[in-house]
Structures are given as C-alpha cells and as structure tokens.
Amino acid sequence: MSLFEGRDLVCLRGGRAVFSGLSFGLPAGGAMLLTGPNGSGKSSLLRLLAGLIRPAGGELLWDGAPVLGALDEHRERVAFLGHLDAVKPVLTLRENLAFWAGLGGAASARIEAALARFSLTDLAEVPARLLSAGQKRRLALARLPLTAAPLWLLDEPTVGLDRASATALAEAIAAHRAQGGRVIVATHQVLELAEAQTLSLGDYPGEGVLLEYVW
C-alpha cells in the first residue's frame, strides 16, 4: 500500500529540539491536519516534509522508498504554501501564475482553471500590488493546482481568507485528493476536510531530548 510515512522524526532548530519521536502515515488521497500551540513545530514539520530542512533523526518514506537520500526527487512531488505568498507586486496575477506554471512545465489551460477556482479571473490583468492581503493569499493558493505535484503542504492557508474563499480552498483540496493527491495542513482555524487524520504536535514535545542529540 502506498504510504507517505514518517518514523521517529526529530527536528532541531537553533540547538533546541522542536519535536521528537514523531511518526505518521498518510495514504494516497489522504489528508492530515497539524494542530498544536504556537511554537510546537507545525511550520518546521511542513518545511521538513518539503525537504527544505533535514530531520536530526528518524526517517521519511515515500511508498517505501527513503526520501532523505533523494531529496531533489522528493522536492518535485511537493507543492508548498508557506507563510509568505511569493507574489511579485509589479506583475499581473496572470503573469505571476504563468511564471510558476512555466517553471513547472504546466499547460496554460491550468492557469485559467486555477484563476477561476479562486475567483480571480476578473483580476487577472491587475498588477498584484493592488491586491488586498486576502486576495494575495488566494493568488498564492491558485499556484497549488498549477502543477501535478502529488503532495500539498499548506501552512496556515486560510489566513486572511473570507468564507467563500475558504470553501473554494476546501473544494480544491477535495479535487486534489480525488485524484490521489495528499494534503497536509497546519492550521488554527476550522477547515472542513473529509476523513482527515489529525496530528497534534503537542504530543511530541522536544524537551529532554536536547542533550542526547547534541552530543
């Protein structure tokens, strides 16, 4: 069975263990919600799963194959949405999306579909500097379905979104999962995800493992 798996993951940031002994398994089409108080390592875990930072211990497996030995390969599976929107203010919305689509070799039809999904079609020719914070977030979200990346990693995707946009996001996630895609979301807000597992980072405290891993 195909599984995106983490075993006994440990994450060190600045010499301090953020979490330790963290394990999970996410099947194709699955969704996972990351919860936990501020500073419990939700963002760190997402960056770790994206391959931006390396775990200090434990292993990551994609369909049984180790991820950490082939990080370049893994990074191409990932569509990542961080705290920052990566929007260029002087480019129009369509140009912003066209760049990321061109980089990933995606067809231009996907750009129109992505704009439509997040109700940005009317704004397509507007320079992104004129957008509100919520609209910028929608533009960042519209980047996700551009490529066929099977793993979506979303860090607080609903920040600044109105109710209709949050629904559009839930629909986009559902469509992605219907095609066998996986989603991992870190959020404080309520996001309607059918049959989602929940991983509470508060259950994997980092304290106490510091010395063991530093020495």
Partner: peptide, 15 residues
C-alpha cells in the same frame, strides 16, 4: 528571499 519565492525556487524543478 523576502517574499518567499526563493524557497519555492529551491523546491522547484530547476537545479
């Protein structure tokens, strides 16, 4: 780096 594009470029298909 400041607007977050750099981490997406690192994750992107280009070496």
């Amino acid at each position: 780096y400041e607007d977050g594009s750099l981490e997406l470029l690192v994750l992107g298909p280009l070496p």
